[in-house]
Design a protein around this nucleic acid. Sequence first.
DNA 1: CGCCTTTGACCAGCGC
DNA 2: GCGCTGGTCAAAGGCG
Length: 496
Amino acid sequence: MDKGHLLALDSSPRPLAFLNLPPFHHRGTMSADHPSAGGRGRRSSVEVDFFSDDKQKEGAKKTPDPPPGGLAIKKKADLTINLLPAATRDDDDEHKMQQLPALQAELGRMNEENQRLRGMLAQVTTSYQALQMHLLALMQPQAQHPIPPPPPPRQFLGLDPAPEEPSNSSTEVVGSPRRSSSTGNNKDLQAAERSDSPDAAGGPSSTAGWLPAEGRQQQEASMRKARVSVRALSEAPIIADGCQWRKYGQKMAKGNPCPRAYYRCTMANACPVRKQVQRCAEDRSILITTYEGTHNHPLPPAAMAMASTTSAAASMLLSGSMPSADGTPMTSGNSFLARAVLPCSSSMATISASAPFPTVTLDLTHGPPSAARPLAPMTPQFHLPQAPLYNQSTKFSGLHMSSSDGTGSTPPSAGPPPPIRIGLADTVSAAAAAITADPNFTVALAAAISSIIGGSGGHQQQQQHGLQQGANANNNNVTSSSNNTATSNNTNSETQ
DNA sequence: CGCCTTTGACCAGCGC
DNA sequence: GCGCTGGTCAAAGGCG
């Protein structure tokens, strides 16, 4: 791991905190549109401190004793800029003095950039919340509904940004799932489960609890269940995501020689969460796992990584995929924002606008987009120390939107609808989820940010906060618990 | 004995 | 209406 490439002499074992942005930072490209850039900053560095809170402390620790009476370039500047051997010698003061103004100016610019990025992050967070509120408003079609009651606080993780308790809900069951439940001994339960799943657990109906029945019907008719499909390189028959799953069926899907296995969560009695596991027909090393529904029970820490990731993805989908009449999801605003934040992304998240199940596909199988490529060697894989989620050669890449068939079996680039960009806030959510899954995602984030400097910056914890505020307001314990080790994955079935 | 997987059958949606 | 397909059920059997 060539940390030096990225960490800018930060030898601490902490997750990425300094982002050694591409050269344009040092050329002032980033500052071109920033009138305030230029040489006022005191504490400055070529490092862009996305995580300044920690970093400021760290920086203070690292440089407890600034050079006495000497150069104004202190602290982190020494760490990153004074790499020239000549500049480190006392007898080369003249050289230092020559460099000083330029260095100061550069440091100032960097500081400004840092501040600006932090400001952008705040804006992103704010925008996300605003978008989410806007989404909620949009989800009330012509219903002069009073201010919706806030979703009940939950500790559960799932695909629903704000799900409601699935059980003992007195609200009528509205909207029909993709198909009515079949007959059978347990069909009533199944029907109730399915009805609850979209209503209470399924993302699209997450807000249905407080929507008028008509509005809910419309909403469900348009959005139904949200799905999150994860494509990961894995030799294992199944992705260990920390949950307990029970296989209840297996089918041969059309167009894929590999069977599709159906699992349901068994961590709680009536947990509506299900997942499908299938190998990619084109590349059998790729395991496609599609999640559907929301857990109605607390999750072990190991499961929270995936849950938060899928939750964020579902949120991304739901908040950006309010289908229009022609089924086109995503508002133009979202698209614009997404373009702003992830122009470099190419293949991380895809969204399927196709009914009946809007689906987000997280493609963890590709290398990083070109913009992040220089950083790629830093994080070839996303190992999740506390959870086995991504420890199966899972790779992360960029974010982008396209269409798939909703089953997760279609490659992200496939599908008739044109690529759709995800919303900025959703991107933040997804990014935050990924960060939750693995701190190394900051590398990719850094690359994304650095490549689109006019777009967004990020503070890891703030993004996580944003995720938890928006993508899943209920999984506040994701971050804190993600450090715990849990090996509760008892999934041992095989797809093939 | 309980939990799980396997697997054939069944049902519903959808397209023709 | 029919066939295809996806999704689910449930009996049977395996395993610890």
